[in-house]
């Protein structure tokens, strides 16, 4: 056990990263098209969950509307391409900015609110967004959705095959991951996390708490916008059903199971929640329920998620309690032994 732990220590981090990278590069050459599509879906969710991780994990503002920001990006990109024939790269950027702007607007009222109210506001945004896209027939074509969105084209190269899209998205995810990680491990990231842990404490060291909350929200939702633009062009069809509240909840779950406050956790969480339903597909109708049970089991036995830090979960959950009980039992036993010695 110790040796296994040692293998995953910081010393071997570079080795594991290199190995993972090689696997990711080699993967499309040995996998089926379906598997490639699953991987690509994971990449899109990676962007979403990374964004949400910054907002919910690092800034501590439980964002229940990530799917709506995702949708804003997707619809902006799709409409720009379909109606005005704007090149993809521009749509991509505008989609990110548009979602970021929405994020900015949503975060402003959130500054005055407690966690739960904030979750409610983002939930409300999610539903308002859905109501708009479902009913603004002339632009979004309502529940029918937008079809025939052209595939991604960059500098004259069309990304239409599964492999090419795979590599494009892999590249984007890697770049975004590095940037996000850099942000988190910088002055800004620390300020964001400090604000989450103690807003007044953060202000007392000169951190402009409100500014960093808004900043985290804008960065996180911008990523969702990017993901939306990519998704729209990748699938070629979007409808309101892609951006329902359940999707937001799934993204939230990815972050929590991955481990709130851990960027790599958001990647693991995304992979987990895309792959798990595929794996338990044979369970058919029981699938959702099994997913639920897995979530409950996680919360009971590892509330900090796969990679989250114990400190963040601040847990006195079942594990801690068992540990405490064990300690008490040990102490009682020792005391009893000592008493026994005394008698002798």
């Amino acid at each position: 056990m110790e040796q296994i732990k040692k293998l995953f220590s910081a010393k071997y981090k570079r080795f594991w990263l290199a190995l993972m990278f090689v696997c990711l590069i080699a993967a499309p050459f040995v996998t089926s098209n379906l598997q490639k599509r699953v991987m690509t879906t994971i990449f899109i969710y990676c962007l979403l969950s990374m964004g949400n991780m910054l907002i919910s994990g690092h800034a501590g503002m439980l964002n229940m509307g990530q799917a709506a920001f995702y949708g804003v990006g997707a619809y902006i990109a799709a409409i720009m391409q379909l109606n005005y024939g704007v090149p993809f790269i521009l749509c991509f950027i505008v989609a990110g900015l548009g979602a970021g702007l929405c994020g900015f607007l949503v975060s402003i009222p959130c500054l005055r609110l407690d966690t739960d109210f904030l979750s409610l506001i983002t939930t409300a945004f999610s539903y308002i967004f859905l109501a708009i896209v479902r009913n603004w027939m002339s632009v979004t074509r309502g529940p029918m959705g937008l079809t025939a969105i052209p595939p991604i084209e960059l500098f004259g190269y069309k990304f239409s095959g599964a492999t090419s899209i795979y590599f494009l998205l892999l590249g984007i995810v890697v770049v975004c991951y590095i940037l996000m990680n850099n942000i988190v491990n910088s002055r800004i990231g620390r300020a964001i996390q400090a604000t989450r842990d103690d807003s007044i404490g953060a202000q007392s060291v000169g951190v402009k708490a409100d500014l960093y909350k808004v900043l985290a929200f804008v960065i996180g939702t911008t990523l969702a916008g990017f993901a939306g633009a990519l998704y729209a062009s990748y699938i070629g069809y979007i409808s309101p059903n892609n951006f329902v509240y359940d999707t937001s909840l799934t993204i939230m779950q990815m972050c929590i199971i991955g481990g709130l406050g851990s960027m790599p956790g958001s990647i693991i969480g995304a992979a987990f929640f895309v792959v798990m339903p595929e794996l338990i597909r044979p369970l058919a109708v029981y699938r959702v329920g099994v997913g639920g049970i897995i979530m409950i089991a996680f919360m009971l036995f590892r509330p900090q998620g796969i990679l989250g830090s114990r400190a963040f979960a601040c847990s006195t959950g079942i594990q801690e309690k068992l540990k405490q009980k064990h300690m008490e039992w040990k102490m009682r036993k020792q005391r009893a032994e000592r008493a026994g010695e005394g008698v002798r």
Binding site: I256, I293, L300, P303
Partner: peptide
């Protein structure tokens, strides 16, 4: 589902509740 995580970070019971919701939904389905 709730009692074991009652004193944990507030997110924890929230998510376990979501898990319970999914189980109930599946059962109903």
């Amino acid at each position: 589902v709730y009692r074991p995580v009652r004193y944990a970070n507030r997110i924890v019971p929230m998510i376990s509740a979501l898990g319970a919701a999914l189980v109930l939904r599946t059962a109903a389905q």
